[in-house]
Design a protein around this nucleic acid. Structure first.
Length: 276
DNA sequence: CACGGATCCTGATGGC
DNA sequence: TGCCATCAGGATCCGT
């Protein structure tokens, strides 16, 4: 479900409410992408009585800082977090993690189980480094400059759509926002990244920031089931220019939006507005 | 090392 | 209605 805007919207929807809470209990359901605790890690019970200090985000990971250690939470394709001060209903078949605190319960619902909840002693711990260490720069951070972006693209031989999805130059751009950013930059998704010159790289850089910012403002995209931790839908999908619009007229030129497969993912674009 | 493909898992949808 | 194929917001692993 979640690309960077959805993850950030989720974070904003419960960070203030959980900060300062004391952990009362924890429950795990079916296994997720990574085991919660490594072989030599603490027992689940040992999280009890730790204090939640706050929630940060790195790429598509949420980092739940505690008085000792942190939890890395990833929503995968189908994950959704709920945080409620009320008593939650008994966990369903796809509720794989509950963190009960003095201020409410955080619950991960993830039918496909591509998500992850992982404990690490610190951000420098091996497991945290393995998950976070290779990530590209933050799109809203100072390291994401036009010069850096252009230099990175020059080294990549793949189509630009796949380079964006790789998360190497910049994190947080997933399948929806990659198509959207390329549309706003007037770039064909098949264009080899290495063939993109400075001017168009700068344009794509601006398009990425613009699209992610707009999606954040609109509360993310709700395609099938995304909701923030309050249970509220996002609205970006209502104004997507190309994503999910195969065969429909381009809002700019009326030509039918095309769809193609790149790396087993659908890419949407306008042949007329976007050039190789 | 960089690339492309297969893979993890469940549910929704559409064609026959 | 049932059955099968395809697709879905992500990331990792494994050949080449």
């Amino acid at each position: 479900m979640p690309e960077l805007p959805e993850v950030e919207v989720t974070r904003l929807s419960f960070a203030d409410r959980i900060a300062g809470a004391r952990i009362v209990a924890m429950r795990m359901g079916k296994p997720l992408r990574c085991p919660l605790f490594g072989a030599s890690g603490p027992s689940p019970h040992s999280l009890v009585d730790r204090i939640v200090l706050g929630v940060r985000r790195r790429g598509k990971y949420l980092l739940l800082d505690m008085s000792q250690g942190l939890l890395l939470i990833h929503l995968g394709m189908s994950g959704r977090l709920v945080f409620s001060g009320l008593v939650l209903p008994p966990p369903g078949a796809h509720d794989h993690f509950d963190l009960q605190t003095t201020q409410g319960t955080l619950r991960l619902h993830d039918p496909r189980r591509f998500g992850a909840v992982v404990y690490a002693e610190s951000e420098d711990a091996p497991i945290a480094q393995k998950l976070l260490g290779q990530l590209g720069v933050e799109p809203f951070g100072p390291a994401f400059t036009t010069t850096y972006f252009h230099q990175h693209l020059r080294t990549r031989k793949s189509p630009i759509k796949q380079v964006l999805l790789s998360g190497k130059p910049v994190v947080g751009v997933g399948n929806i926002y990659a198509s959207e950013a390329l549309f706003h930059a007037a770039l064909r998704p098949q264009t080899l990244a290495s063939r993109i010159g400075r001017v168009r790289a700068d344009k794509l850089h601006a398009a990425i920031v613009l699209v992610l910012t707009r999606a954040l403002d609109l509360g993310g995209s709700t395609l099938r089931d995304f909701a923030n931790a309050h249970g509220e839908d996002g609205h970006f999908q209502l104004q997507a220019a190309v994503y999910g619009r195969a065969g429909l007229p381009c809002h700019v030129c009326q030509a039918p939006i095309q769809v193609l497969r790149q790396g087993q993912r659908s890419t949407f674009y306008c042949t007329n507005c976007q050039r190789p």
